[in-house]
Design a protein around this nucleic acid. Sequence first.
DNA 1: CGTATTTTATAACAGTTGTTATGTGAAAAG
DNA 2: CTTTTCACATAACAACTGTTATAAAATACG
Lengths: 181, 181
Amino acid sequence: MAASWNVIAQEGLGAATLRRVASVAGVTTGALTHYFSDRDALLIEALRAAHMAAGARMLEAAERDLSAKARLTAVVFEALPLDYNRLTEWKVWLAFWGAAAADARLLDENRRRYAEWRRLLQGLLEPLKKEPRQSSELADHLMVFIDGLGIKVTLAAPARFPRERTRAVAMVTAHIESLLD
Amino acid sequence: MAASWNVIAQEGLGAATLRRVASVAGVTTGALTHYFSDRDALLIEALRAAHMAAGARMLEAAERDLSAKARLTAVVFEALPLDYNRLTEWKVWLAFWGAAAADARLLDENRRRYAEWRRLLQGLLEPLKKEPRQSSELADHLMVFIDGLGIKVTLAAPARFPRERTRAVAMVTAHIESLLD
DNA sequence: CGTATTTTATAACAGTTGTTATGTGAAAAG
DNA sequence: CTTTTCACATAACAACTGTTATAAAATACG
């Protein structure tokens, strides 16, 4: 799976051929076809695995013994491309988003993932919400914010990454702070 | 160009082969190779053309004789996938974003486009800003918001498009309203 | 009209792709 | 030890790709 992620993130979805992924993984195509029926199956599994790895990190952050605000902040940071691993994850997601607009199967995969993600955020927002607003609306707004911010950081020129990273952290804390005052 | 857009939006970047684009355009590959040196040249030109079409619409909206708030709202609406044409545009952008993470040339193309887009928004925000905040920060925030919202609408299940569209419009007006109070 | 130039079509090329079939060696089972 | 199963490698296939070269048609121009 790590091999697929690296190929997709560094060379793009189109470069993720069976031969290329196998080569990076240090095996031959025979090993891949033994475990995956299709090229599509391999790629979808790579996407699922990336989703699950991120999901596990977020659940872990959500269960830490912190204040409600600190918990939410920790989870949101986990969702953003703030280090190399998470940046790779974002590149993989972005590649699949680009393909999902033309692929009903990927679209559905994405939809399922978003439902979970939304449920998690909504639960974390519930104890923080100001009365007049629904936590579902807050979750929607936060997801939109995270997606936009993640793209901004992911597509920044590599040299600008540190600056973008710092700005993203500041924007997140300001945004979460604004939910409370 | 319209043929490239339709192929990319409906079938994905990978399906945008010379033969497929030519077929949709009602010509043969000979016509394409006459005008474009490369496949890459064709695709980049398709991206540029999409950017320019959207840019022209936005400039037009920015120059209409409206209040500062209404002007900003009109421009932002023009940037969102609120009808079929703009949805197609977003699918094209999304496809290129997915590829840009692994392609320095596309990354730079995207960076240039963002600089213009940011300048336009900043100018529209200037007369609206509350004193303590810089219009550059407001522009950053707004761009993040628009990108996230555009993705949300673009990747919604087709059946949910009307609902998502309505929600997006409401979120934009609320967001712009919050810049003023 | 005839000629020059631009535009498009056709055809062929070598390279790459996903897929399938078959071979091979190692581990597990008896 | 023997046999069976599993994990992988190798090889071959037809299909499709971008690119290039060449021919034909359409247009512009004198």
